[in-house]
Computed example of a mutant assay.
Amino acid sequence: MTEVSSLTGRLLVATPALADPNFDRAVVLLLDHDEEGSLGVILNRPTPVEVEDILEPWADLAGEPGVVFQGGPVSMDSALGVGVIPGPAVEGPLGWRRVHGSIGLVDLEAPPELLAKALGSLRIFAGYAGWGPGQLEDELAEGAWYVVESEPGDVSAPDPERLWRSVLRRQRSELAMVATYPDDPSLN
């Protein structure tokens, strides 16, 4: 088996050609990527469900909009917390595990007070996006995703519906042009 270069911490940005409605214009933060598969959360799918309705102790720490995000089509009945610890912290607080840079997973079973002072932003996700061994690599080879660097602000983008365009627009390549791709090319 060939070695897989880890994409953990990077963003998958759906290409306009991606036909799966679960990922239409999705921006996925990869939380884990290795030879056993990949796991990530969709950063730009807010739901109408308020964080306080399902995880009340975490509601005050959740960024705006204070809603649960649909992390993906897998295990929609489970919750994941993704938080950013600002600054050059060598080690995050108890209840936070670094994924990439200042982005990490939050243990939602931990008392929120453990993280309150250190946490710069928090998003709660219902479900996740998952790929089996080699599945994501196949999708990348088919041109379904653009792979770009993440920024800590992507996790807590105040206008998540515009994240797809803004992530593409900041690229220093022809990808910046894709940000102008119309929602329905037939109307062009």
Rank of each mutant, 00 (worst) to 15 (best):
M1P: 02
E3M: 03
V4L: 07
V13A: 04
T15P: 10
A17T: 07
A17Y: 13
L18W: 02
A19Q: 02
D24C: 04
R25P: 14
V27A: 07
E35R: 15
S38I: 04
L39R: 06
L39K: 03
I42T: 12
L43G: 06
L43H: 08
T47A: 09
T47S: 15
P48Q: 03
D53N: 12
A59Q: 08
P65V: 10
Q70D: 14
G72C: 09
S78L: 11
S78R: 11
G83E: 11
V90K: 04
E91M: 14
G92L: 09
G95N: 05
R98N: 02
G101S: 08
G101N: 01
I103M: 09
L108D: 04
E109M: 08
A110F: 01
A110R: 09
E113N: 00
A118R: 09
L119A: 01
S121A: 15
L122C: 06
L122M: 07
F125Q: 02
A126S: 13
Y128F: 08
E137M: 06
A144P: 09
V147F: 07
E149V: 12
G153W: 03
S156K: 06
S156Y: 00
S156R: 07
P160N: 12
E161T: 13
E161H: 14
L163Q: 07
W164V: 13
W164T: 13
S166E: 15
S166N: 13
V167K: 00
R170S: 11
R170K: 11
S173P: 14
A179I: 11
A179M: 11
Y181M: 14
Y181G: 09
D183A: 14
L187D: 12
L187G: 06
L187P: 07
N188W: 13
N188T: 09
N188S: 11
